[in-house]
Design a binder for these strands. Sequence first.
DNA 1: ACTCGTTTCAAACAAGTGTTTAAATCAAGA
DNA 2: TCTTGATTTAAACACTTGTTTGAAACGAGT
Lengths: 210, 210
Amino acid sequence: MSHSDTKIRILDGAEQLFAREGFHNTSLRALTSQAEVNLAAVNYHFGSKEALLQAVIERRLLPLNAIRAEKIETILTQAKQNLHLPSAEDLLRAFIEPTLEFRSSSPGAQDFINLIGRALIDPDETIRNCFLQLVSPLIQRLFQGLSEALPHLAPEVLLARLQFIMGSMSHVMCMGSHSAPPPGLAPSLEAKALTDQLLIFALAGLEAPE
Amino acid sequence: MSHSDTKIRILDGAEQLFAREGFHNTSLRALTSQAEVNLAAVNYHFGSKEALLQAVIERRLLPLNAIRAEKIETILTQAKQNLHLPSAEDLLRAFIEPTLEFRSSSPGAQDFINLIGRALIDPDETIRNCFLQLVSPLIQRLFQGLSEALPHLAPEVLLARLQFIMGSMSHVMCMGSHSAPPPGLAPSLEAKALTDQLLIFALAGLEAPE
DNA sequence: ACTCGTTTCAAACAAGTGTTTAAATCAAGA
DNA sequence: TCTTGATTTAAACACTTGTTTGAAACGAGT
């Protein structure tokens, strides 16, 4: 077993189990036996169960945030160069599309998206902050950009609508993972179409007259 | 201590702790000591921790569902009587408004709304089903009504948009409960205005051209 | 071949988990 | 007042939790 194979196996196993069973409902024994590593390996390599969660989130969220941030900055600087307002649709797409595309990027990414889709409303403040700390600068930048794109919208209203969109997005991120969705509530659109529909929906809600 | 005071104290304590700490992160010892009842009382009165969760949810969700169902049925029958299509806005309001108003109806209701706001995307299938089983007939009826109200909308699209709305709604239901929301992400609108904004947002998204 | 820092391992640790038990207590009905 | 059923209680049950320990195994550098 090569140098950090163990670390990766733990990260992969944790990602899967934290997403599918929940953080508090996942024991280190279940985790380490699924990852086929020794029980003590988690504390040796990560320090604690909570630090492991942090590592699981950072591993994928930092790259994803970099992609989203870059897309948003590009839109904003190009708008400034061409002396027109940034497009709200472009900004929304820059935030939403990479996130949902990320699901099919690698095995385990689906679990990861599921995990962070739930993080924003998790009852455990530690879990929430672990996620928020990494994502809130990005959301604030998005808010800033959207208020440039929609200058007629009152800031409180824009903020509320952005929250609604985060809610819809979280919901979509957690969909498709439940093994047996109840009839009538199952999603019938495939991933790409669902993303497009979410964008249409979010943009219409965002631009609604007050 | 009168006859079923104990039962109510347990229900109240469980509602609060399940909502604020999460189901799996709440121990029966923490629960019973907060409710000031004996540890064994939970198993005596409810049978198990899971059955207690079911009771916590049913206590408030059954009445709430009755209110929402009645409002929806009234709208649909009146539309049928007057030979016009039901209003999508009325239907949405019938579902959303009682839910969010319910938060201020009684002490503990805020915790309850928080709890079920998270239930739909909970990783634990038992928790999810406990909630879905009670709410999915209502959502299916709402879907039925909305497809009458918006006959031009493809059913898969309507279903997707309804899911988006459920996501926004869940998000709002879980808001305002986090003790210290991070700056820039805190809701600045009060409850009533937030409900109105959600309705405007949801309706615009629902009626967006495909 | 031998050392040295890193990593793995089985075992144990103290504390906490949901649940059960049997005796004690209570509130009424006869 | 005595009895009977429902409720409360402290204690114990069997088991799981995250974390720590100290010895064993490993792998590269000399």
